[in-house]
Amino acid sequence: MLNNPVLVNSSRFILLVLAQVLVFNHLNFFGTINPMVYVLFFFWYPVKENNATLMLTAFALGLVIDIFSDTMALHTLAAITLAYFRPFMMRFCFGINFDFQNFSFKNATVVQRMTFLFLLIILQNMVFFFLEILSFSHITLILKQILFTTLATFLFCSLLIVLFSKNQE
């Protein structure tokens, strides 16, 4: 049962949504910082899967989180952007290996994986906060939010990855 990718991804979808809307949306570090941990869905998603499926799933994921957090469609826009740029980022992070048939996450180095995670998070945060405020009089505010939220998200995602990693020897 644990090997069925559809089941695994569906339960991941639901658990990440619940974690985001019930816990992480209400952390409010220093008043305004809420990590956006649903980015892990894109980190954990199977490498070889069809990108159109991922994009539609991302749309649903973002929309559900948006409905819960009353953020119009900001999470949706961030999520589909992540889904679209994910293959490019993987090629950038894992190099030429990515195109080989036998490529898998397990034979990538920790640094490569962390770079990939960081790129995902920074893109997600940029899309979210630029579209949220949409006014350049607030540019310093946007940059501050992106910086701190990216750091917090990165920290929490790394912890969650370590916590839920399967290949412990």
Binding site: M72, A73, L74, T76, T81, A83
Partner: peptide, 17 residues
């Protein structure tokens, strides 16, 4: 087709927003 799908979904999202 992925790019078209992305643009389509992005426009839908923007309209909502």
């Amino acid at each position: 087709r992925n790019t078209f799908l992305y643009v389509l979904l992005f426009v839908i999202g923007l309209v909502f927003t």
